[in-house]
Amino acid sequence: MERIQSTLDPFGGHFLVHGAPAREVPEGSWPGACVIIAFPAYENARAWYGSEPYQALIPLRTRHMEGDAS
């Protein structure tokens, strides 16, 4: 968690929701937790995702949990 936050800071990103269970799903299914990250602008989010520090962490996330990023 600490490593993720340090990748967000340069882009103004912060967690709005982290690990909250999906209590109510009005359509379809959501079999897990919810994570929402906010950025000041779309460009910041794209720059963060493509940044070298975050790219280095992606294998840690994908090896330890299933999920989609959108």
Rank of each mutant, 00 (worst) to 15 (best):
E2V: 07
E2D: 13
R3V: 01
R3M: 02
R3G: 00
Q5H: 06
Q5F: 02
G12E: 05
G13M: 02
G13D: 03
H14E: 10
F15D: 06
L16R: 15
V17I: 08
G19R: 10
G19W: 05
A20L: 12
P21H: 05
P21R: 09
A22W: 11
R23T: 04
V25S: 13
V25F: 11
V25R: 14
P26F: 13
E27C: 05
E27P: 02
E27W: 06
S29A: 13
S29M: 08
W30K: 10
W30H: 13
W30N: 13
W30R: 12
P31A: 13
G32F: 07
A33Q: 14
C34Q: 15
C34W: 06
I36V: 14
A41E: 13
Y42N: 09
E43Q: 14
N44E: 15
R46H: 12
A47V: 02
A47D: 09
Y49W: 09
G50Q: 08
G50M: 07
S51P: 01
S51G: 03
S51D: 01
E52M: 01
P53H: 00
Q55W: 04
P59Y: 05
T62Q: 12
T62E: 13
M65C: 06
E66K: 15
G67D: 14
D68H: 09
D68Y: 06
A69V: 14
A69Y: 06
A69M: 11
